[in-house]
C-alpha cells in the first residue's frame, strides 16, 4: 500500500438491536493508522460514526476494536501493517461486550468485576513508621502495572467472548493481572487464593494465551499472572503433600478469604 492510494474500510455500523458492515473509501497518507482512517470517514462521510478515542498514543486504552478480526488498538495499528491481510479492511466493535453504537461498546461489566476485588491491604508499618520493600521483590508485579485497561484481553478471551453465560463467575485476564499484582506483592496481607478460585473462576481459563497475544503493553499475562495464580490455587486445593504438611506443622495455614469490599 502506497501513500495517496485509496483503500476500502468495511466498518460495522449499528446498535444493540441490529447492524451491518458498511464500506467507505479513504485516501491514505504516510504513517496513517486505522484510527486516522476512521476519523477521516467521520470527518468527511459519516459524521454520526460512533467511536471512542483519546490519547492516540496507545496509553489510554479507549480505541480498542477488532481490525480484520484481530482485537487491536486502532491508534497503534498502521494501515501498512494490516494491508497485507487483504482489501477491504474490516473494523468491528469488540465482540465480547454489548454494542452501544457502531464501534462503541459497553464495557461496564469490567468495572463491576473490578469492584469485587479487595483493595491492596498492606501490612502495618515498621516501628519507625515506614514500610520497607526491595526493588528485586516488586519487579515481578511492576510488569502488571503497565496495564492500560483497553480490555482487549477480555475481548479475546473465549471464556466470555463465546460463552457469555460465564460472565458472572469469571473475572477475565485483566483482573487476573490485577489479582496477581496484589497476591504477589511483598506487602499485601490479604488472602486472595479462595477468591481467585471461586469468585474469579480461574479454573475456567484453559491458558490458550490469546490474552497475551493481544496485549498492547506486552504483559506476559498467561505466564506471569494466570499460571502462577493457578499454581497458588493448586498449593491450597490440589496438593495432598502440602495439605499434609499444613496439617502436621500448622505452617502455611490459610486464613479465611478476605471478603470483598462493601460498596
Amino acid at each position: 500500500m502506497n501513500a495517496g492510494e485509496e483503500i476500502t474500510l468495511r466498518v460495522w455500523r449499528g446498535d444493540a438491536a441490529a447492524g451491518r458492515l458498511v464500506d467507505y473509501r479513504v485516501r491514505t497518507a504516510e504513517g496513517m493508522v486505522v484510527l486516522d482512517a476512521l476519523r477521516a470517514i467521520q470527518a468527511t462521510q459519516a459524521p454520526d460514526l460512533a467511536m471512542r478515542w483519546n490519547c492516540k498514543a496507545g496509553k489510554c486504552g479507549s480505541c480498542s476494536a477488532e481490525v480484520n478480526g484481530h482485537p487491536r488498538l486502532t491508534c497503534m495499528t498502521r494501515l501498512t501493517e494490516v494491508a497485507g491481510e487483504g482489501n477491504p479492511l474490516t473494523v468491528a466493535p469488540m465482540r465480547a461486550f454489548p454494542v452501544v453504537k457502531d464501534l462503541v461498546t459497553d464495557v461496564s461489566w469490567n468495572y463491576e468485576k473490578a469492584k469485587e476485588i479487595p483493595p491492596f491491604s498492606p501490612a502495618p508499618r515498621d516501628p519507625d513508621g515506614r514500610r520497607r520493600m526491595y526493588q528485586h521483590e516488586v519487579e515481578r508485579v511492576q510488569e502488571f502495572r503497565k496495564c492500560i485497561e483497553c480490555f482487549l484481553c477480555q475481548d479475546v478471551c473465549h471464556v466470555i467472548r463465546d460463552h457469555p453465560e460465564n460472565k458472572p463467575k469469571f473475572a477475565g485476564p485483566r483482573f487476573f493481572v490485577l489479582l496477581a499484582a496484589y497476591e504477589m506483592h511483598p506487602l499485601d496481607t490479604a488472602n486472595r487464593v479462595e477468591q481467585i478460585r471461586q469468585d474469579a473462576g480461574i479454573g475456567f481459563c484453559n491458558i490458550t494465551k490469546c490474552c497475551t497475544e493481544v496485549c498492547p503493553e506486552g504483559i506476559h499475562i498467561t505466564d506471569n499472572a494466570i499460571i502462577p495464580l493457578k499454581e497458588r490455587v493448586v498449593d491450597q486445593h490440589y496438593d495432598p503433600v502440602l495439605w499434609l504438611w499444613r496439617k502436621l506443622t500448622g505452617r502455611g495455614k490459610t486464613s479465611a478469604a478476605t471478603p470483598p469490599p462493601s460498596r
Binding site: W12, G14, A16, A18, G19, L21, E66, N68, G69, H70, E85, G86, T90, A92, P93, M94, R95, A96, F97, P98, V99, V100, T105, D106, S108, W109, E112, R161, P164, E165, K167
Partner: peptide
C-alpha cells in the same frame, strides 16, 4: 449492566489471515 451479547457479526471470525 446491558445484555451480554456483542455485535451480531456475520461470521465465526472476521480474521482474514489463514
Amino acid at each position: 449492566m446491558m445484555a451480554d451479547t456483542g455485535a451480531a457479526l456475520p461470521a465465526a471470525t472476521l480474521r482474514r489471515d489463514p
